[in-house]
């Protein structure tokens, strides 16, 4: 079973150097802005979300996770067309949940990471749409087909990305 339930003492908590903490989210935001104009399918990926999930789960600290999500989400909002805060709220929730989950479960297996990423993608989308439609009154439609496919795509890319980012982990 890839997901193992362990006590807080048994789970390793990781930290990251400052260049990685700052540089990786910035690089993710840059790629998210630059690449989709060249590869249109890239827009279905949400690299900032994947980075949020990774950092939050590795640090296993809900406060750190929610602030990481808020910072990355707000930065993503600033580059977008909609009001600032929609991504911020969605990623704050995901960061909090991911770090809370990371504190309870040790998710190191590729299959578990795929499922967790898919789940968080859907949670992120649900919060995003709720805020966008309920608060900002944007007329956005949700497509289950696109949502699931994009979630799976993010899951697969996430597994690869997490594998790369694992190299930057530092044990506390």
């Amino acid at each position: 079973m890839p997901i193992t339930y362990t006590s807080g003492e048994q789970i390793e908590v990781y930290r990251f150097s400052i260049p990685v903490t700052v540089g990786v989210p910035l690089l993710a935001l840059f790629l998210q802005s630059f690449v989709p104009r060249r590869i249109s399918y890239f827009s279905y990926l949400d690299l900032p979300l994947l980075v949020t999930i990774f950092f939050s789960m590795a640090r296993r600290n809900p406060i750190s996770g929610l602030f990481t999500g808020a910072a990355i989400g707000l930065a993503q909002d600033m580059l977008g067309a909609y009001p600032i805060g929609i991504y911020g709220i969605a990623k704050t929730v995901v960061g909090y949940l991911a770090s809370s989950l990371g504190a309870k479960l040790d998710v190191e297996n590729a299959g578990a990471r795929l499922l967790v990423t898919l789940g968080f993608y859907l949670v992120h989308a649900a919060v995003y749409f709720t805020v966008a439609r309920g608060m900002v009154n944007l007329t956005l439609d949700w497509s289950w087909k696109v949502g699931i496919l994009a979630g799976l795509a993010n899951g697969f890319v996430g597994v690869g990305l997490y594998f790369v980012l694992d190299k930057f982990k530092q044990r506390t």
């Binding site: 802005s33 630059f34 104009r37 827009s43 993503q76 580059l79 977008g80 067309a81 956005l140 994009a150």
Partner: peptide, 11 residues
């Protein structure tokens, strides 16, 4: 030169 980079907003 760039985009909003999301499938949720096309800009």
């Amino acid at each position: 030169i760039g985009s909003s980079g999301s499938d949720l907003s096309r800009s």
